[in-house]
Amino acid sequence: MRNVSAQPRPILRLVRRLFVGFVLVSLLVVGGTAFRVWQVARIDDREHADVVVVLGAAQYAGKPSKVLEARLRKAKSLYEEGVASYVVTGGGRRAGDRFTEAEAGRTWLVNQGVPRDRVIDVGEGNDTLGTIRAVATEVKRRGWESAVIVSDPWHSLRARTMAHDAGLEAWTSPTHSGPIVQTRETQARYIFRETAALLYYRATNASADGIALDGEVG
């Protein structure tokens, strides 16, 4: 007599195959996204644009954090090279702050020699998505449409994706200095977090605040 119990049931085989397929597809999606985060982080596009956009990061009583200062130095360099005629600083204020991230960025740039009338501060947004949407609204209101986005390398793909969705023609010129790019361990950690944040945004069209440490990453 044949032992029926030894034969896997058809429904069980189907469930196993579906599970294995789901795992494989998930790994491909996550791995492919992580590779794109790493790949775009290596692109330094200095093609002429209407504006250079500096995404905000932490500031302390109007003084940029090291993360934000690295972004501002890169933006100043791009402005001086003629990549764009204007610099837009973005970022709102946290609870208890006297200054917005945008104001801190504007003050730093002006103190470093960038003409005041060439710096536009947009003090809205407490995460990447909110900042980019506010910046895009202001940029388009002035009749412009293209932007070079300055942020940290691993943040570049997510920022560029959000800028495109907000109606800007955008490319990236990331920083290559500052605490976020100092060690391989730090780089790997931020690549992982940016991969999760980008997948979350693509799935929900919402901010991944808390997943990608937006207070520091932008």
Results as ranks from 00 to 15, higher is better:
Val114Cys: 00
Glu124Gly: 05
Val88Gly: 00
Gln112Lys: 12
Leu198Gly: 09
Ala134Tyr: 11
Trp154Ile: 06
Glu185Tyr: 09
Arg193Ile: 14
Tyr190Phe: 15
Leu157Ser: 13
Gln112Val: 02
Gly210Asp: 01
Ala6Glu: 15
Val52Tyr: 02
Glu103Lys: 05
His176Ser: 11
Phe19Pro: 03
Ser146His: 09
Glu69Thr: 05
Ser5Pro: 00
Leu109Cys: 00
Arg106His: 06
His176Ala: 08
Gly178Lys: 07
Ala197Phe: 15
Val51Ala: 13
His155Asp: 14
Leu78Ser: 12
Ser146Ala: 13
Ala170Pro: 07
Gly21Lys: 12
Arg42Phe: 06
Arg71Trp: 03
Ala104Arg: 00
Thr172Met: 11
Arg116Leu: 05
Gly215Val: 07
Asp44Cys: 05
Thr161Pro: 05
Ser65Val: 02
Gly62Tyr: 01
Ala102His: 01
Gly90Glu: 07
Lys74Leu: 05
Val20Asn: 03
Ile120Val: 15
Asp45Trp: 04
Leu157His: 14
Val148Gly: 10
Val83Ala: 14
Leu72Ser: 00
Trp154Ala: 12
Leu14Lys: 09
Val29Trp: 06
Tyr60Gly: 04
Leu12Cys: 06
Asp44Arg: 12
Gln7Tyr: 08
Gly113Trp: 03
Asp45Lys: 08
Arg93Ser: 15
Leu24Gln: 09
Ile180Gln: 14
Arg94Gly: 10
Arg13Met: 14
Val87Phe: 04
Ser65Lys: 01
Arg16Val: 13
Glu69Gln: 11
Arg189Gln: 11
Leu27Phe: 14
Trp154Met: 14
Ala166Lys: 14
Ser65Thr: 02
Gln112Met: 08
Val25Met: 06
Gly105Gln: 00
Leu72Lys: 01
Arg116Ser: 12
Pro153Ser: 10
Leu24Pro: 08
Thr89Ala: 07
Glu169Leu: 09
Val67Gln: 00
Ile132Tyr: 09
Leu109Val: 01
Ala61Asn: 13
Val67Pro: 00
Glu194Lys: 10
Arg94Cys: 01
Leu78His: 06
